[in-house]
Design a binder for these strands. Structure first.
Lengths: 119, 119
DNA sequence: CAAAGATACATAAGAATATTATGTATTAGC
DNA sequence: GCTAATACATAATATTCTTATGTATCTTTG
Protein backbone atom coordinates (compact mmCIF):
# COMPACT_ATOMS: atom_id res chain seq x y z
CA UNK A 1 0.00 0.00 0.00
CA UNK A 2 0.80 3.59 -0.04
CA UNK A 3 1.31 5.69 2.98
CA UNK A 4 1.56 9.20 1.79
CA UNK A 5 2.73 11.85 4.16
CA UNK A 6 2.05 14.82 1.98
CA UNK A 7 -0.57 14.00 -0.59
CA UNK A 8 -4.11 12.83 0.00
CA UNK A 9 -4.10 9.11 -0.54
CA UNK A 10 -6.79 9.16 -3.20
CA UNK A 11 -4.54 11.27 -5.42
CA UNK A 12 -1.81 8.72 -5.60
CA UNK A 13 -3.93 5.67 -6.22
CA UNK A 14 -2.95 3.97 -9.39
CA UNK A 15 0.52 5.45 -9.69
CA UNK A 16 2.25 2.76 -7.65
CA UNK A 17 2.61 0.39 -10.58
CA UNK A 18 4.07 3.13 -12.76
CA UNK A 19 6.56 4.09 -10.06
CA UNK A 20 7.69 0.52 -9.49
CA UNK A 21 8.06 -0.20 -13.19
CA UNK A 22 10.05 2.99 -13.66
CA UNK A 23 12.49 2.15 -10.87
CA UNK A 24 12.92 -1.41 -12.13
CA UNK A 25 13.52 -0.14 -15.65
CA UNK A 26 16.43 1.91 -14.36
CA UNK A 27 18.07 -0.35 -11.85
CA UNK A 28 18.06 -3.82 -13.39
CA UNK A 29 17.13 -5.57 -10.19
CA UNK A 30 15.71 -4.38 -6.90
CA UNK A 31 14.09 -5.89 -3.83
CA UNK A 32 10.92 -4.71 -2.17
CA UNK A 33 12.33 -2.86 0.77
CA UNK A 34 14.86 -1.18 -1.51
CA UNK A 35 12.02 0.15 -3.65
CA UNK A 36 10.27 1.68 -0.66
CA UNK A 37 13.48 3.40 0.44
CA UNK A 38 14.33 4.66 -3.03
CA UNK A 39 10.90 6.23 -3.49
CA UNK A 40 11.12 7.83 -0.06
CA UNK A 41 14.54 9.22 -0.90
CA UNK A 42 13.66 10.48 -4.39
CA UNK A 43 10.47 12.18 -3.24
CA UNK A 44 11.91 13.62 -0.06
CA UNK A 45 9.43 11.50 1.94
CA UNK A 46 6.46 13.00 0.12
CA UNK A 47 5.53 9.57 -1.14
CA UNK A 48 6.12 6.64 1.16
CA UNK A 49 5.20 3.22 -0.16
CA UNK A 50 4.01 0.78 2.46
CA UNK A 51 4.44 -2.96 2.36
CA UNK A 52 0.75 -3.75 2.26
CA UNK A 53 0.52 -2.13 -1.14
CA UNK A 54 3.92 -3.02 -2.53
CA UNK A 55 4.21 -6.75 -1.92
CA UNK A 56 0.83 -7.71 -3.37
CA UNK A 57 1.66 -5.60 -6.43
CA UNK A 58 5.04 -7.25 -6.90
CA UNK A 59 3.42 -10.69 -6.63
CA UNK A 60 0.85 -9.63 -9.19
CA UNK A 61 3.55 -8.39 -11.57
CA UNK A 62 5.31 -11.71 -11.24
CA UNK A 63 2.11 -13.63 -11.94
CA UNK A 64 1.63 -11.53 -15.08
CA UNK A 65 5.14 -12.19 -16.34
CA UNK A 66 6.18 -8.55 -15.94
CA UNK A 67 8.99 -9.44 -13.54
CA UNK A 68 11.02 -12.46 -12.59
CA UNK A 69 12.31 -13.07 -9.09
CA UNK A 70 15.52 -14.26 -7.55
CA UNK A 71 15.85 -15.04 -3.87
CA UNK A 72 19.15 -14.24 -2.23
CA UNK A 73 20.24 -15.08 1.30
CA UNK A 74 21.83 -12.21 3.18
CA UNK A 75 23.13 -13.90 6.28
CA UNK A 76 20.07 -15.61 7.68
CA UNK A 77 17.72 -13.10 6.11
CA UNK A 78 16.01 -13.52 2.75
CA UNK A 79 15.96 -10.89 0.06
CA UNK A 80 13.79 -11.22 -3.03
CA UNK A 81 15.06 -9.43 -6.10
CA UNK A 82 12.77 -8.40 -8.93
CA UNK A 83 13.88 -7.98 -12.52
CA UNK A 84 11.81 -6.77 -15.47
CA UNK A 85 11.22 -9.23 -18.27
CA UNK A 86 11.24 -8.04 -21.87
CA UNK A 87 7.48 -7.70 -21.66
CA UNK A 88 8.02 -5.83 -18.42
CA UNK A 89 10.33 -3.35 -20.09
CA UNK A 90 7.73 -2.63 -22.72
CA UNK A 91 5.02 -2.25 -20.09
CA UNK A 92 7.27 0.13 -18.17
CA UNK A 93 7.73 2.36 -21.21
CA UNK A 94 4.00 2.31 -21.92
CA UNK A 95 3.10 3.17 -18.34
CA UNK A 96 5.59 6.01 -18.13
CA UNK A 97 4.46 7.43 -21.44
CA UNK A 98 0.85 7.14 -20.39
CA UNK A 99 1.52 8.99 -17.18
CA UNK A 100 3.46 11.75 -18.95
CA UNK A 101 0.52 12.19 -21.30
CA UNK A 102 -1.88 12.18 -18.38
CA UNK A 103 0.13 14.94 -16.71
CA UNK A 104 -0.10 17.01 -19.87
CA UNK A 105 -3.85 16.56 -20.03
CA UNK A 106 -4.31 17.39 -16.37
CA UNK A 107 -2.04 20.42 -16.69
CA UNK A 108 -4.30 21.79 -19.40
CA UNK A 109 -7.45 20.85 -17.54
CA UNK A 110 -6.34 22.41 -14.28
CA UNK A 111 -4.80 25.33 -16.09
CA UNK A 112 -1.41 24.82 -14.50
CA UNK A 113 1.82 26.23 -15.84
CA UNK A 114 0.32 28.01 -18.85
CA UNK A 115 3.66 28.95 -20.33
CA UNK A 116 6.08 26.11 -20.47
CA UNK A 117 8.96 26.15 -22.84
CA UNK A 118 11.06 23.09 -23.47
CA UNK A 119 14.70 23.96 -23.99
CA UNK B 1 -17.68 7.42 -12.12
CA UNK B 2 -14.95 7.85 -14.60
CA UNK B 3 -14.93 6.36 -17.99
CA UNK B 4 -11.60 7.05 -19.48
CA UNK B 5 -11.05 6.42 -23.12
CA UNK B 6 -7.34 6.92 -23.20
CA UNK B 7 -5.87 6.38 -19.77
CA UNK B 8 -6.01 3.28 -17.64
CA UNK B 9 -8.71 3.87 -15.08
CA UNK B 10 -6.46 3.23 -12.12
CA UNK B 11 -4.31 6.19 -13.10
CA UNK B 12 -7.12 8.66 -12.85
CA UNK B 13 -8.60 7.54 -9.58
CA UNK B 14 -8.61 10.32 -7.10
CA UNK B 15 -8.37 13.19 -9.56
CA UNK B 16 -12.11 13.56 -10.07
CA UNK B 17 -12.61 15.73 -7.00
CA UNK B 18 -9.77 18.01 -8.02
CA UNK B 19 -11.17 18.36 -11.53
CA UNK B 20 -14.68 19.16 -10.31
CA UNK B 21 -13.46 21.68 -7.75
CA UNK B 22 -11.30 23.36 -10.38
CA UNK B 23 -14.17 23.74 -12.83
CA UNK B 24 -16.50 25.05 -10.14
CA UNK B 25 -13.87 27.52 -9.00
CA UNK B 26 -13.80 28.97 -12.49
CA UNK B 27 -17.42 28.97 -13.52
CA UNK B 28 -19.37 30.10 -10.46
CA UNK B 29 -22.14 27.56 -10.95
CA UNK B 30 -22.42 24.40 -13.02
CA UNK B 31 -24.70 21.40 -13.23
CA UNK B 32 -23.60 17.78 -13.39
CA UNK B 33 -24.08 17.07 -17.03
CA UNK B 34 -22.37 20.34 -17.89
CA UNK B 35 -19.31 19.24 -15.92
CA UNK B 36 -19.08 15.97 -17.82
CA UNK B 37 -19.27 17.80 -21.15
CA UNK B 38 -16.75 20.44 -20.16
CA UNK B 39 -14.19 17.83 -19.10
CA UNK B 40 -14.74 15.90 -22.30
CA UNK B 41 -14.25 19.06 -24.33
CA UNK B 42 -11.19 20.30 -22.47
CA UNK B 43 -9.43 16.95 -22.57
CA UNK B 44 -10.34 16.14 -26.15
CA UNK B 45 -12.29 13.10 -24.88
CA UNK B 46 -9.24 11.68 -23.16
CA UNK B 47 -11.03 11.91 -19.84
CA UNK B 48 -14.74 11.22 -19.83
CA UNK B 49 -16.52 11.47 -16.50
CA UNK B 50 -19.43 9.14 -16.08
CA UNK B 51 -22.51 9.76 -14.00
CA UNK B 52 -21.92 6.87 -11.65
CA UNK B 53 -18.80 8.61 -10.36
CA UNK B 54 -19.87 12.22 -10.65
CA UNK B 55 -23.26 12.35 -8.95
CA UNK B 56 -22.23 10.55 -5.77
CA UNK B 57 -19.23 12.87 -5.53
CA UNK B 58 -21.38 15.97 -5.94
CA UNK B 59 -23.73 14.72 -3.25
CA UNK B 60 -20.78 14.09 -1.00
CA UNK B 61 -19.41 17.58 -1.59
CA UNK B 62 -22.79 19.02 -0.70
CA UNK B 63 -22.97 16.98 2.50
CA UNK B 64 -19.52 18.30 3.43
CA UNK B 65 -20.49 21.90 2.84
CA UNK B 66 -18.13 22.31 -0.09
CA UNK B 67 -20.93 23.19 -2.48
CA UNK B 68 -24.49 24.45 -2.28
CA UNK B 69 -27.18 23.48 -4.75
CA UNK B 70 -29.92 25.24 -6.59
CA UNK B 71 -32.53 23.40 -8.58
CA UNK B 72 -33.77 25.06 -11.74
CA UNK B 73 -36.59 23.92 -13.98
CA UNK B 74 -35.77 23.93 -17.65
CA UNK B 75 -39.13 23.28 -19.24
CA UNK B 76 -40.27 20.11 -17.53
CA UNK B 77 -36.74 19.00 -16.86
CA UNK B 78 -34.80 19.59 -13.66
CA UNK B 79 -31.30 20.95 -13.57
CA UNK B 80 -29.28 21.03 -10.36
CA UNK B 81 -26.66 23.73 -10.16
CA UNK B 82 -23.68 23.48 -7.87
CA UNK B 83 -21.84 26.46 -6.43
CA UNK B 84 -18.72 26.45 -4.28
CA UNK B 85 -19.05 27.78 -0.77
CA UNK B 86 -16.28 29.85 0.77
CA UNK B 87 -14.93 26.68 2.32
CA UNK B 88 -15.26 25.07 -1.10
CA UNK B 89 -13.16 27.78 -2.70
CA UNK B 90 -10.42 27.19 -0.18
CA UNK B 91 -10.61 23.45 -0.68
CA UNK B 92 -10.41 23.97 -4.44
CA UNK B 93 -7.22 26.00 -4.12
CA UNK B 94 -5.73 23.43 -1.78
CA UNK B 95 -6.58 20.54 -4.06
CA UNK B 96 -5.21 22.24 -7.15
CA UNK B 97 -2.03 23.21 -5.36
CA UNK B 98 -1.68 19.70 -4.02
CA UNK B 99 -2.05 18.23 -7.47
CA UNK B 100 0.46 20.65 -8.99
CA UNK B 101 2.93 19.65 -6.31
CA UNK B 102 2.17 16.00 -6.90
CA UNK B 103 2.90 16.45 -10.61
CA UNK B 104 6.25 18.00 -9.75
CA UNK B 105 7.14 15.11 -7.46
CA UNK B 106 6.09 12.52 -10.02
CA UNK B 107 7.97 14.33 -12.76
CA UNK B 108 11.14 14.06 -10.73
CA UNK B 109 10.43 10.49 -9.70
CA UNK B 110 9.67 9.32 -13.22
CA UNK B 111 12.45 11.44 -14.62
CA UNK B 112 10.17 13.23 -17.07
CA UNK B 113 10.90 16.52 -18.80
CA UNK B 114 14.33 17.12 -17.30
CA UNK B 115 14.71 20.55 -18.85
CA UNK B 116 11.69 22.74 -18.44
CA UNK B 117 11.96 26.46 -18.54
CA UNK B 118 9.14 28.69 -17.41
CA UNK B 119 8.84 31.84 -19.49
C1' DC C 1 -44.13 11.63 -36.78
C1' DA C 2 -41.60 8.00 -34.87
C1' DA C 3 -37.21 6.58 -33.54
C1' DA C 4 -32.71 7.61 -32.02
C1' DG C 5 -29.71 10.24 -29.64
C1' DA C 6 -28.78 13.84 -26.43
C1' DT C 7 -29.93 15.97 -22.07
C1' DA C 8 -30.42 15.25 -17.00
C1' DC C 9 -30.95 13.29 -12.90
C1' DA C 10 -30.15 9.06 -9.63
C1' DT C 11 -28.63 4.65 -7.34
C1' DA C 12 -26.87 -0.02 -6.54
C1' DA C 13 -23.87 -4.14 -7.21
C1' DG C 14 -19.37 -5.26 -8.08
C1' DA C 15 -14.29 -4.60 -9.00
C1' DA C 16 -9.89 -2.67 -8.12
C1' DT C 17 -6.63 -0.62 -5.23
C1' DA C 18 -4.90 1.20 -1.12
C1' DT C 19 -5.12 1.46 4.16
C1' DT C 20 -4.58 -0.36 8.46
C1' DA C 21 -3.25 -3.91 11.19
C1' DT C 22 -0.88 -7.85 12.22
C1' DG C 23 2.60 -11.47 11.97
C1' DT C 24 7.39 -13.48 11.69
C1' DA C 25 12.30 -13.01 11.82
C1' DT C 26 17.09 -11.03 11.49
C1' DT C 27 20.46 -7.38 12.11
C1' DA C 28 22.38 -3.03 13.78
C1' DG C 29 22.97 0.49 17.05
C1' DC C 30 22.80 2.36 21.62
C1' DG D 1 19.02 -5.96 26.45
C1' DC D 2 16.04 -2.93 24.03
C1' DT D 3 14.76 -0.27 20.08
C1' DA D 4 14.88 0.69 15.43
C1' DA D 5 15.80 -0.82 10.96
C1' DT D 6 15.76 -4.43 7.56
C1' DA D 7 12.81 -7.80 5.02
C1' DC D 8 9.34 -10.54 3.94
C1' DA D 9 4.02 -11.59 3.98
C1' DT D 10 -1.14 -11.48 4.34
C1' DA D 11 -5.92 -10.39 5.80
C1' DA D 12 -9.82 -7.30 6.98
C1' DT D 13 -11.50 -3.02 5.84
C1' DA D 14 -12.25 1.32 3.33
C1' DT D 15 -12.37 4.08 -0.62
C1' DT D 16 -13.21 5.06 -5.20
C1' DC D 17 -14.45 3.96 -9.64
C1' DT D 18 -16.91 0.79 -13.14
C1' DT D 19 -20.73 -1.18 -14.93
C1' DA D 20 -25.41 -1.52 -15.09
C1' DT D 21 -29.83 0.01 -14.54
C1' DG D 22 -33.74 3.19 -14.03
C1' DT D 23 -36.65 7.32 -15.08
C1' DA D 24 -37.88 11.15 -17.92
C1' DT D 25 -37.60 15.09 -21.28
C1' DC D 26 -36.03 17.33 -25.44
C1' DT D 27 -34.03 17.55 -30.10
C1' DT D 28 -32.84 15.96 -34.45
C1' DT D 29 -33.42 13.37 -38.47
C1' DG D 30 -35.10 10.20 -41.77
Amino acid sequence: MYLCVMYSSELIKGTLKTIVLKLLSETEKMYGYEITQKVKELTDSKIVITEGALYPLLHQLEAEGIVTTETVNIGKRVRKYYTLTQTGNERAKEKIYEFADFINTMTILLDLKPNIKYV
